[in-house]
């Protein structure tokens, strides 16, 4: 999906449709500087794939489980590994933050912003939740607002100045404080091989080696066991709410499907071509298979929720599918670590 657009310097800008906001914005900033790099590549190099179950943090009564690393980490890691230098700035004063945005846009530079998705009124109402981690790219100032390239939409949109200011300076958990970032220096033709290996190894370590039961493969297992028991522990309606929250994290929030698993499979496929490695291609296919199991888990969960009556057997089934995912992912990341050790940059 492409659209002809331009920045305030009159430079043409091509809008692409991305699955995820943070990788999308990072890829957009690199592509704008003439570096041809895809979203899966950014995701893999930035070690985006993860699993974490955080039982002690609740949002709207639902415990948080995440299929990705913490917000901002992908951008930070990917840009560092690719050798890009970025200027990042937070503001206390909204007026100053908006003035600075205008100043940078006038130099012809496109700017990445972290925003609260609730105040971005160009989104369909059902997507608008108080969530402070949505990333967008601003192209130029227009009458009464800004032209915005939102990576998860398939076309650029207009955003009112008032909306954008509210979105940038919203309060609550993970306050963005008007965070904006734009490149100072991007290497014209960065080497992808070394960053790929770095990204893969980092990911394997995070999935396998964190000695806490809530992260990585251990986290999936912990949560799977919780899901199996959840109807007995919380009662059916509450168990459904928790399960729905989990599936929303997996499918709703711009993951490209199956909690980023397909996105990572796409990265492994691209890496396989880059290195000419058959082993990586095999692992990509295995990752796709794991993604399909996650999708099945979502389907089973939706059925449980729809029935709205006691159905312990299916909670067991849903949790069982997660255990399958955990087992296969453990195997995959172990193999991936070995394969990455053999790759030469």
């Amino acid at each position: 999906m492409m659209d002809q657009e331009f920045t305030s310097g009159g430079k043409p800008f091509i809008h692409y449709h991305y699955a995820h906001c943070e990788t999308g914005v990072t890829a957009t900033l690199f592509r704008d500087q003439g570096v041809d790099i895809s979203e899966p590549m950014i995701f893999g190099i930035g070690s985006g794939i993860f699993f974490g179950h955080l039982p002690f943090i609740k949002m709207a009564g639902v415990t948080i489980s995440t299929y990705r690393t913490q917000p901002g980490a992908i951008f930070r890691k990917a840009s560092k590994r690719l050798g890009g230098k970025f200027i990042t700035q937070k503001y206390r004063n909204p007026q100053k933050g908006m003035d600075e945005l205008r100043r940078v846009l006038q130099t012809g530079q496109i700017v990445g912003l972290t925003t609260n998705i609730y105040w971005l009124s160009y989104f369909p109402n059902r997507f608008r939740f108080q969530f402070n981690g949505h990333n967008i790219v601003v192209l130029r100032e227009i009458e009464q607002g800004f032209r915005v390239s939102d990576p998860v939409l398939d076309h650029p949109v207009d955003c009112l100045t008032e909306d954008l200011e509210r979105a940038r300076f919203a309060k609550g958990p993970l306050e963005p404080h008007g965070l904006m970032y734009y490149p100072k220096f991007i290497p014209p033709d960065p080497d992808l091989k070394a960053p790929c290996i770095q990204g893969i190894k980092d990911t394997c370590r995070m999935m396998l080696k964190i000695p806490l039961p809530v992260f990585g493969i251990r986290g999936i297992r912990l949560l799977a066991k919780k899901v199996i028991k959840s109807a007995d522990v919380y009662g059916f309606p509450e168990a459904c709410r928790q399960l729905a929250g989990l599936v929303r994290m997996q499918e709703e929030v711009g993951t490209g499907g199956a909690g980023f698993r397909y996105l990572y499979a796409a990265f492994l496929q691209e890496a396989a071509e880059l290195f000419g490695s058959g082993e990586l291609a095999d692992l990509s296919r295995e990752m796709t298979g794991i993604g399909d199991v996650w999708r099945e888990f979502a389907v089973v969960s939706a059925r449980i929720i729809k029935q709205r009556k006691s159905a312990e057997a299916t909670f067991a089934k849903a949790g069982g599918l997660m255990l399958v995912c955990a087992g296969r992912e453990e195997q995959l990341f172990q193999n991936l670590y070995k394969v990455a050790g053999k790759l030469r940059a």
Binding site: M1, H17, Y18, A19, P40, F123, P124, N125, R126, F127, V152, L153, D154, G254, G256, G257, Y262, L263, A265, A266, Q269, E270, T288
Partner: peptide, 22 residues
């Protein structure tokens, strides 16, 4: 219910390659 908006998904095409599908 996306109200006309579409969302990008990663999927495999007939040649076995990953592509973005709205």
């Amino acid at each position: 219910y996306y109200e006309g908006q579409k969302r990008a998904c990663y999927a495999i095409n007939n040649e076995g390659k990953y592509v973005v599908v709205p």
